[in-house]
Structures are given as structure tokens and as C-alpha cells.
Design a binder for these strands. Structure first.
Length: 96
DNA sequence: TTTCTTACA
DNA sequence: TGTAAGTA
């Protein structure tokens, strides 16, 4: 079931669709990237490619922003979260 | 048409 | 944060 699930390619979205999925304006998406909150892949044309993983991070950013955390602090939180997930392997994050 | 960057309010 | 201009 969940073990060995080959996901060859994750759905990539353009900035406008990612903005809608995350509920954030494309303008803000670029701002977050500027602060190093996330790093979407880039096309040869230079267009950003947001993956499903990036969308989840965008939502995390929105939550922190709503909590009163500034972009500099969010970058630190995301960095720690990413490292935690890596050390734990792939534990299902419990959302409360 | 959409995306990109930069700049201003 | 939103919008403008000029570009690819």
C-alpha cells in the first residue's frame, strides 16, 4: 500500500495556479521565494514550477504569517521542519 | 495570453 | 500588497 509507491513525477503548477492552490497571490509567492521560504524548480524559459510539495509549504508559510511570524522567522521554521522530516524519514505529520 | 524582473506608492 | 512598464 503505502510502501514502495513509485511517484515518477509530481504535478507541477505554474505560479498563478500555485497561488490559487495556496490561496496566495503570485506577487507574494515571488516574495516568499525571495526570502528563501521555498525554491521552486525553473524552466528553461525561467518560469517557476511549483510542485505539490511546494504547495504544502506555501500553506505552512501562510499559517505562520497568520500567526504573526515574519518571513525571516518562517524561513527558520521551514528549515527546521524540513530537517526534522528528513531525520524522521517520512512520518505522517500530525496536523491539529 | 502568461510569465519574468524591477520599481514605486 | 497591488500595480506599471517592458520583455520573452
Amino acid at each position: 500500500m503505502s510502501s514502495g509507491r513509485p511517484e515518477p513525477d509530481q504535478p507541477l503548477y505554474t505560479i498563478s495556479v500555485a497561488a490559487e492552490l495556496a490561496g496566495i497571490s503570485a506577487r507574494t509567492l515571488r516574495l516568499y521565494e525571495r526570502h528563501g521560504l521555498l525554491t521552486p524548480q525553473r524552466t528553461e524559459g525561467g518560469t517557476r514550477r511549483y510542485s505539490d510539495n511546494d504547495i504544502a509549504r506555501l500553506r505552512r508559510v501562510a499559517e505562520l504569517v497568520a500567526s504573526g511570524v515574519n518571513l525571516a522567522g518562517i524561513r527558520h521554521v521551514l528549515d527546521l521542519q524540513d530537517e526534522n522530516t528528513r531525520l524522521r524519514g517520512s512520518q505522517p505529520a500530525e496536523g491539529e
